[in-house]
């Protein structure tokens, strides 16, 4: 198989995730788009790991999965906190830190 198959799949998923981060207003949906981006990175790491016959890519893919799990935990806790205080998780209403 061509390595470009996997790399282009990763690129497509990454760009869809970036569109989601830009376009979505709901905080949970933005977190889901970030998950798409992290998965595309994992596909790239594993493709290069196989190309070079080296397990380092697998190691870092596992580390990325762990970091993503931690990120989702903290992110959803923050979303719940915001929801409890404001009854809304719409990101464009969070403007207290505007300069």
């Amino acid at each position: 198989m061509l390595i470009n198959n996997f790399l282009l799949l990763g690129a497509v998923l990454f760009c869809i995730g970036v569109y989601g981060v830009i376009a979505r207003k709901n905080a949970v949906m933005v977190l889901m788009s970030i998950e798409l981006i992290l998965n595309s990175v994992n596909i790239n790491l594993l493709a290069f790991s196989m190309l070079h016959g080296n397990v380092d890519g697998n190691t870092f893919a596992l580390y990325i999965i762990a970091v993503a799990a931690a990120e989702v935990g903290v992110g959803l806790a923050m979303v719940l906190l915001i929801y409890r205080n404001r009854k809304s998780i719409s990101l464009d209403e969070l403007s207290e830190m505007k300069g």
Partner: peptide
């Protein structure tokens, strides 16, 4: 896809 890329442990973890 991870299985196709010969990374079965990462696939199971995923």
């Amino acid at each position: 896809q991870y299985l196709l890329l010969a990374a079965e442990f990462v696939a199971v973890t995923q």
